[in-house]
Design a binder for these strands. Structure first.
Lengths: 335, 335
DNA sequence: TCTCCAAATGCAAGCGCTTACATTGCCTCA
DNA sequence: TGAGGCAATGTAAGCGCTTGCATTTGGAGA
């Protein structure tokens, strides 16, 4: 129990154990390159001196930090919270740690955050979506920082995600099959958000394929209130029989607004979501939505990123989405 | 646009600008100690060489990393996700970054995570609640790692939190005033969780003060299903007229179970939550709950921790909670 | 018994930055 | 005009660890 104020260094341990610092270092980083007896002595010394390695020195000498950075729009949306949670849990405890930054759906801020994480020594990055200035990708390449993109899919870069457009297309199919023709959409802000754009595009194109168009689109910031207000505005057109929403939060807001307006869902109006987060099964009726395997995605992303960091190649992963039919959809005309 | 593979170092910049490395370092870390003309030359050199400081070297030489660590039970509960989000946003961009780890309400894992974050050079820590082995606190003190505890209050250590017990006591008062006497509780697991214990204790004691006891307690893991099952089990005793829940998720689960059982809330049963997260205003009827200023708490914690890291003293912050009366409470006997 | 080899360990040169202290040069003031 | 002071800059000693290469050691094989 030494009461020195300064912490023990590798050198102290080496002296205590009667070996060189190199041996101690080896003992810590690749134990099998050290004879058992020596290992034992060193282990004791480490315990006796209450030694733990200096992070900066280790990072400087080894050129790796074991830190992985993630930049997400916000932790307030359960989608990202769950994904990040799964991502973090999939990182080998002790080997990597997760540096998290949020950017509030702002690409400039995202850029700053990325630079900040890289400056903090991130060995790799987890980013959301593809929308990003090409120069940023170039910079990342130049700095040789491996990264994986999640929550979307594409044909460039490594990603662990899903097809937003196809997911939405499947939902439109369901709604059309139900007989709806007057369909509107509440979308998130599409500027600088390829996921929102892909979802909107999925709706537009599926409709166009059947010779139809959207009866209305509201682009609002994600949030219950945004969804509620958009719903109220769109429903000025009483011929609309179905409203698809860009995510579950928007849909939950719409649902709440529908109740306040005295509409009965799904009798009077069909409302659908996207993501299948917890709240989708708490609303009344429960929300018909598109299920996205967020947790699985987080795990896959973690595995991919580790491989990339360790210099191996890694295939992108495209996860399937699935329609979850619950209580907010029905044929039109119930009114 | 140089294509060297190795990155520019401080020395390269110094050479390019025709000054010493010390001056470049000063120019970066305290610009006003350098003459404007020199500053300009250096700035240009930095840009020209696309320089950015090496993190490990900086950490080693300055003995600070600018990394703050947080260990929370899980990001899956919106309570923590929002708190952490606010915490992160309150950190001066570029000055500090947030290393996040989750422990799944497991104290052993929490300990490992704390050690891991400290090993990664965290300058300070954000932790949840007070329940923790004294030796861990001793270790933290020995390593001189400042920390602040959140989501709870106490009379030791620095904290930014609120009084879980008092919050629950206020809720019990409301329920009692409504006329309820047969009250049960759905609590989170109290083992190693002082917040859950304080909430339970708040209920027990407020009841005892009126000469009453709890008609039933279910301790379950936080989650919709846990809340639902506990509700079903507790309601075997049909004399119960009110069920207070340890948090909103549990309450939402209970509410859902109540609907499935054909009970009308609040006519047949009063159900209350705690936290006032988003889902509390999505359920039908909306949840009567205890509002906790999670975002504000995150901010305060961030400010406190910065002060502590920078060697200043900082007072703990006790935030008020507030009862939010929505639609899930009513006098008993409606059945 | 002698040679040769592999395993175990030691030596020492960095890694790129910060900072205490030393130096320079210029301006102010008597 | 010279002393004194201060702002700006330079010098160089670390910070604590990793790692390529050199050295030692103990057998195995001849």
């Amino acid at each position: 129990m030494d009461e020195t104020t300064a912490h023990a260094t590798l050198e102290d341990v080496a002296a205590f154990a009667g070996v060189s610092t190199a041996t101690v270092s080896r003992c810590i980083n690749s134990p099998d390159r050290v004879a058992p007896a020596t290992r034992e002595k060193i282990t004791n010394a480490i315990r006796a001196l209450n030694y733990s390695p200096n992070f900066g020195a280790k990072a400087l000498a080894s050129r790796r930090t074991g830190i992985i950075g993630a930049v997400i729009p916000t932790l307030e949306n359960a989608v990202f919270a769950h994904g990040i949670d799964a991502f973090e849990r999939a990182l080998p405890q002790g080997k990597y740690s997760l540096l998290v930054a949020s950017c509030g759906y702002d690409l400039n801020r995202e850029k700053q955050q990325i630079e900040s994480l890289v400056a903090r020594g991130a060995d790799g990055l987890l980013l959301v979506g593809f929308d990003r200035d090409p120069s940023l990708y170039a910079w990342l390449a130049h700095r040789r920082v491996p990264f994986v993109l999640a929550w979307a899919s594409g044909d460039s870069h490594h990603f662990a995600g899903f097809d937003n457009k196809a997911g939405m297309a499947a939902m439109i199919r369901l709604v059309l099959d139900l007989g709806h023709r007057k369909i509107a959409m509440i979308s998130g802000l599409t500027d600088g958000n390829d996921r929102a754009r892909a979802r909107l595009e999925g709706v537009r194109q599926s409709l166009a394929d059947r010779g139809l168009g959207l009866c209305g689109v509201a682009e609002v910031p994600y949030g219950l209130d945004g969804g509620g207000q958009a719903f109220t505005e769109l429903m000025v057109d009483r011929s609309i029989t179905a409203i698809v929403c860009g995510n579950d939060v928007l849909a939950a807001g719409a649902l709440r607004a529908a109740h306040h307006m005295g509409l009965v869902v799904p009798r009077d109006i069909t409302i659908t979501g996207f993501d299948d987060i917890d709240i989708a099964s708490i609303t009344l009726p429960e929300l018909t939505t598109v299920r996205v395997p967020h947790a699985r995605m987080g795990q896959e992303a973690a595995l991919m990123l580790q491989r990339l960091i360790e210099g191996q190649e890694s295939e992108s992963v495209l996860l399937p989405t699935e329609i979850v039919e619950r209580g907010t959809h029905a044929p039109p005309g119930g009114r």
